[in-house]
Design a protein around this nucleic acid. Structure first.
Length: 579
RNA sequence: GGGCACGUAGCUCAGUCCGGAAAGAGCGUCGGACUUCUAAUCCGACGGUCGUGGGUUCAAAUCCCAUCGUGCCCGCCA
């Protein structure tokens, strides 16, 4: 409704300006600050003051007078307040919002017909997922959900770097060392099991004798060259390690939850000849140069050339990634990639190279986030420093469980929570809290991990939002009926009006967040929504003797439930029926 | 050295792209509210040179320049 109101307002302002013979290029439509009784406002009078030869206040008054709301459904009136022109919504606006939001899928936008691939996580399968990288699956999964809800066809991809040195090292280590020389795994899980070989191998390469290291390096090199040459045996050896570790990692990621439609292996683009073909096309470019036995691409905006073929004739990660991206461009209308900020330069070089190859790089969007660090420094899979995602989630659930149990004891309520309810709530709340903590912040901000902060269950957290959902469910359940004839005009208190206004904005929030690929906008919205709902809850008793009023308020609660449930779903956070 | 991000209340953050109404939340501190549809809630108080200095503008947290601090990057690694 908000989007329609905005369109009507723009239209009306435009028409009024034309009637006054004023320019209509910039309408300066904005949302007024809190406390102003209007849905939309315009500050255009400032800009037109000199042109009109009049004070802003006068211009605003003239403009408000010139606005003709005849023929609009949602725009009711315009009024000048100082230099601002405020716009008010009609009864239809409130009625339509209430009616539309009674649909369970409220907020979902019309299908765009666009197919979008969201690539996220894509961590090298070297071991258990740690918290340092946990931002990637959470942001990525939320973006995917957001774009889906905004009407796009979305596929989620995990790009598996199975062709690089790291996996060759891993494979060599896995085949070389005996289990008896390794410590006990931290968990009985494939990724925890195998990472021990990886760590052992890396230590060996740092501390071993020169001869031992040389031997190992020969083996590692032969694995890498085997992959490049298309040697089936090499694929099998590496593939076994990659698939095993990846399966373990995905089990952890699914707890967030983060699921994938496809795991795209890097080696695929070697095996199908795409990389080779791409190299030939790169060589043919005007700015391709052959220097120091290696093929490079001269990219004027960058300090250094981009090497795309090593002197030994093998391809580089970036070369394969170019082929990978051309494949994505061919299969989808748009590609979004979630990357750590350390990949920024590489990503811009990639885009420049794709551009040079004649691709439309408007198809590509990269979202960068900064790593989560520990107070004592970085987390590393290789070194084994860091907090495993599983440990964080376990701790979150166990702390949430304590909360549930505490509250059962000292709360005045006749709950009959079963053991399985407690378990469910603990899981929903605990994991939701972790997820919300991450998805509610701008990805570019640095985060230092601290247990107590990540596991805060109070206001401005997932449980705060989830609680609102549980409240709506509680009320609807208590009603024991669903209203049929609803008279929206009965919802006339300030709190009811405010709530409807916030609900009305939801689709616009989805549109804007999807456009900007910023799920945190939705998180900010859930907070505003929860505050507004709580004010309504405080002031308006829903279930009462007055049947007509009860019905109207029940409709509003149902609309609220759909709004908050869908917002949470976009964020990938569960909406508990009770808690 | 160069490039890119970040810097808003004691702490954690919205707001910055697209300049507009007295800078918003939460945590913490202090004081209040459960015979009521769930108190993981609500109400109130206290708390701000929007890193700093210039500039543009009728108007700057927001745009421009400079500067300081922090992080990331500048491989024939991924």
């Amino acid at each position: 409704m908000f989007l329609s109101l905005r369109a009507e307002t723009e239209d009306a302002v435009s028409a009024a300006l034309s009637a006054l013979s004023l320019p209509t290029t910039d309408l300066s439509i904005e949302e007024p600050p809190e406390g102003v009784d209007a849905i939309l406002a315009s500050s255009i009078a400032f800009r037109l003051a000199s042109e009109a030869g009049n004070a802003p206040g006068e211009v605003a008054a003239d403009l408000a007078n010139a606005i003709d709301v005849e023929g609009y459904t949602f725009l009711a009136s315009a009024s000048a307040q100082g230099p601002y022109v405020n716009f008010h919504a009609s009864e239809d606006y409130y009625e339509e919002t209430l009616e539309t939001a009674r649909n369970e899928s409220y907020g979902r936008l019309e299908p765009t017909g666009r197919e979008i691939v969201v690539e996220h996580t894509s961590a090298n399968p070297t071991g258990p997922v740690h918290v340092g990288r946990a931002r990637n699956p959470i942001i990525g999964d939320s973006i995917a959900r957001l774009l889906d809800f905004a009407g796009n066809e979305v596929d989620r991809h995990y790009y598996v770097n199975d062709a690089g040195r790291q996996m060759a090292v891993f494979t060599w280590a896995y085949e070389t060392f005996e289990e008896s020389e390794l410590p006990e795994p931290a968990r009985e899980k494939a990724d925890y099991d195998l990472v021990r070989y990886y760590r052992k191998g890396n230590r060996f390469l740092e501390e071993g004798s020169e001869r031992e290291i040389e031997e190992a390096e020969t083996e590692i090199r032969s694995i890498m060259q085997g992959l490049e040459a298309g040697d089936e045996k090499a694929y099998e050896r590496v593939g076994h390690v990659v698939d095993t570790v990846l399966e373990g990692m995905c089990e952890s990621l699914s707890r967030l939850p983060a699921e994938f439609d496809e795991f795209v292996k890097e080696t695929r683009f070697i095996r199908d000849g795409d990389t080779e073909e791409l190299v030939e096309r790169l060589k043919a470019l005007d700015n391709a140069v052959y220097e120091e036995d290696a093929w490079q691409l001269a990219l004027p905006e960058f300090e250094k050339n981009l090497v795309f073929l090593r002197s030994d004739g093998t391809s580089l990660y970036t070369t394969r990634d170019l082929a990978h991206h051309e494949w994505k461009f061919a299969s989808y209308d748009h590609a979004v990639t979630v990357l750590g900020e350390d990949h920024k330069l590489q990503a811009t070089q990639l885009a420049a190279a794709l551009d040079a190859l004649g691709n439309d790089i408007e198809q590509l969007d990269s979202v960068f986030y900064s790593y989560v660090n520990l107070p004592e420094g970085k987390m590393s899979t290789r070194a084994g420093t860091g907090i495993d995602l599983d440990d964080l989630l376990d701790e979150a659930v166990s702390r949430a469980r304590e909360e549930v149990e505490d509250r059962m004891d000292d709360r005045i309520r006749d709950d009959d929570l079963t053991e399985s309810d407690i378990e469910r709530i603990a899981r929903q709340v605990g994991i939701g809290a972790v997820r919300y903590d991450i998805v509610s912040k701008q990805p570019s901000k640095a985060i230092t991990f601290e247990w107590d902060r990540a596991l805060n269950f109070e206001a401005q957290s997932a449980p705060y939002i989830q609680y609102v959902h549980a409240r709506t469910c509680g009320i609807l359940e208590g009603a024991e009926r669903s209203p049929n004839d609803v008279d929206p005009a009965l919802l006339e208190s300030e709190e009811e009006r405010n709530l409807i206004e916030v609900i009305a904005r939801f689709p616009a929030v989805i549109e804007s967040a999807a456009e900007d690929r910023q799920p945190h906008q939705v998180a900010t919205y859930t907070r505003e929504f929860a505050e507004t709902f709580n004010a309504f809850y405080r002031e308006c008793q829903v279930l009462s003797e007055d049947e007509a009023l009860t019905d109207a308020r029940l409709a509003l609660v149902a609309a609220s439930k759909h709004t908050i449930a869908n917002a949470l779903s976009v964020l990938g956070i569960e909406a508990p029926e009770s808690m």
